[in-house]
């Protein structure tokens, strides 16, 4: 028994029929072929699958696709607007905030939300915000620096816009 859903992903509207038990992450990866969102633990502990649902960072491995009917989802593929990297992506590149890259999409989505809520976070606040995302390669220090770098970039942009 399949259920009809209507989800907007990265600004594109998708209509489809899914099994009620289909996980959001499988819907994104298998039905929409958006494979940038990764699966690292299936138990919402590692954060590799983090996406934004209606602006909120959530772990897509423990949500059903049917729960998303009528929602707007942003994945890592939708973060760079018109081919220009998001400041968080730039920060990760400039500060070597990634090594194997597997946790990176989830890290970046979470970091983007941290900065949206708190444009001027302390290192401790960044670390606290990243609690739900595991990285085994970097030791997190470069990630913290990447997020601080992104915060600076976003602030200077806001200043210019004013």
């Amino acid at each position: 028994m399949k259920t009809k859903i209507n989800v907007t992903v990265n600004g594109v509207s998708h209509q489809g029929e899914v099994e009620p038990r289909m996980l959001l992450v499988h819907y994104l990866r298998d039905a929409l072929n958006l494979t940038g969102t990764h699966i690292g633990c299936e138990t919402s502990l590692c954060g590799a699958c983090t996406v934004l649902v209606d602006g909120l960072a959530v772990k897509s491995c423990t949500l059903f696709a049917v729960q998303l009917d009528g929602s707007k989802v942003t994945t890592i593929e939708g973060l760079a607007a018109e081919g220009k990297l998001h400041p968080v992506q730039e920060g990760f590149w400039e500060h070597h905030g990634l090594q194997c890259g597997y946790c990176t999409p989830g890290m970046i989505m979470t970091a983007a939300q941290i900065l949206e809520r708190n444009p001027d976070p302390s290192d401790e606040e960044i670390r606290h915000g990243l609690e739900g995302n595991l990285c085994r390669c970097t030791g997190y220090q470069h990630i913290v620096q990447a997020v601080q770098c992104a915060a600076k970039k976003m602030k200077s942009k806001t200043a210019v816009a004013r």
Binding site: R29, N33, L34, T35, G36, T37, H38, I39, T75, I76, E77, L79, A80, L85, Q89, F92, W93, E94, H96, L98, G101, Y102, T104, P105, I108
Partner: peptide, 20 residues
């Protein structure tokens, strides 16, 4: 800066499960 990063930070890399 790493040359491998642009694909990784945009979700465009291909790990085994991303190959269809």
């Amino acid at each position: 800066k790493r040359t491998e990063d642009p694909r990784l930070i945009q979700g465009l890399a291909h790990y085994v499960d991303d190959i269809k």
